[in-house]
């Protein structure tokens, strides 16, 4: 299997507090990798560092062999890492369709001048992207809501919209930050089907999630963090039987 992301001895220190300490893991192509751990373990911090929202203090992150530490978030996105947010960050006052079209930003070329003049190739590109966005909305099942304002959707659908928007960037790695939070059981089932569909497209997934039933069901591999350090790694079955993990979650 092809290695796409590798994190090596990564430190993130805020003030004097180490949010992540000497953490390392890898993600292969087409794999669903889950990052789990108790609250405050550093999962979201890890995701923010990978996507360029937070800068690391020490260590390396390589994506397809290219070191991406310190790159601006939009450049990392263009390399093929996309994400959703723990607290939904849809573009509230834009339509569902426009939200997804923002995701297409990187593979468009219109600039301020050509857009303002509405040149022929700009309009053609606009049509292409609109169709692409519609296809993605169809894929996630939000097609009939395409002209609604994003903020008018229930939270579960906004999370799905964030996934469609992230897919629009044509990612090779999709990072999902607690995508099932606030979903009811049938939504969660829908979601796990969607994640498998995404996996079938050959997109790797880095998942942060508290719903253990879901995590164990859809993950190929897990990495467990506690107090900013990696305490275990393995398949769902290995993790379920790991005494150190039990200690972290239940003991202390």
């Amino acid at each position: 299997m092809e290695l796409i992301l590798s994190v090596d001895s990564l430190d993130v220190i805020f003030g004097g507090l180490a949010a992540l300490k000497d953490v390392g893991f890898t993600i292969q192509k087409g794999v669903i990798k889950s990052l789990i751990g108790p609250n405050g373990a550093g999962k979201s911090t890890m995701l923010n560092v990978i996507t360029g929202v937070i800068q690391s203090t020490k260590g390396d992150i390589h994506f397809y062999g290219k070191r991406i530490n310190g790159l601006a978030a939009h450049k990392i996105s263009r390399l093929g890492i996309s994400r959703t947010f723990q607290h939904v960050e849809t573009f509230a006052k834009m339509s569902v369709l426009e939200n997804v079209m923002v995701g297409c930003h990187s593979h468009m070329s219109a600039n301020l001048l050509t857009s303002g003049l509405s040149l022929f190739n700009v309009r053609r590109e606009e049509d292409r992207v609109k169709n692409e966005a519609l296809a993605l909305l169809d894929f996630v099942g939000l097609l009939d809501k395409k002209y609604q304002e994003a903020s008018s959707l229930p939270i579960g659908e906004q999370r799905i919209l964030e996934i469609a928007r992230a897919l629009a960037t044509r990612p090779k790695l999709l990072c999902l930050d607690e995508p099932a939070a606030g979903l009811n059981e049938s939504d969660t089932n829908q979601f796990s089907i969607l994640v498998r569909e995404i996996k079938k497209k050959g997109i790797s997934i880095l998942l942060i999630e508290h719903d253990m039933k879901l995590v164990m069901k859809i993950s190929d591999e897990l990495t467990v963090l506690n107090y900013g350090q990696k305490i275990a790694e393995g398949t769902p079955i290995e993790i379920q039987n790991d005494p150190v993990v039990h200690e972290a979650y239940l003991g202390g």
Partner: peptide, 18 residues
Amino acid sequence: RALRAIHTSEVAASSMGV
């Protein structure tokens, strides 16, 4: 679209490649 995205959430906009 990029401008309006920036208006609502800079972090989400930049994560979308803006």
